[in-house]
Amino acid sequence: MGSLRVTFVQQDGVEKTVADAEAGASLMVVARTNGVEGIFGDCGGCCSCATCHVYVDPQWQERVGPADEVEISTLDMVSDLQRSNSRLSCQILLRPELDGVRVEVAPGE
């Protein structure tokens, strides 16, 4: 059990806060293991399917950091839902400075 805090805002407006996430885990895995709706992670965290799409809260964007080239090309496959704060949650690994991070689940399938 870790001690990092993460908040997911689902498409239905429900907020799910996980208080015991571990450093090193991806946000996608944290979401799936805690029953966050709308995060599927079909490809298992391989940055290939865009089913774990989130919008990072603007206040957290700088600390979370930008998507790399490979992630940008996967996000482009769902460009209708893409925003400037789009990330694939499988590519965001938790670390102490992300304690408290807040993301909104993008609409999906």
Binding site: D42, C49, A50
Partner: peptide
């Protein structure tokens, strides 16, 4: 298309093609 990646040629869900990339 804005939703290009939502085709089902690789399937979807837990059995989505493992070699898609």
């Amino acid at each position: 298309r804005g939703n290009l990646g939502r085709h089902l040629s690789f399937g979807a869900g837990i059995h989505r093609c493992v070699g898609l990339s």
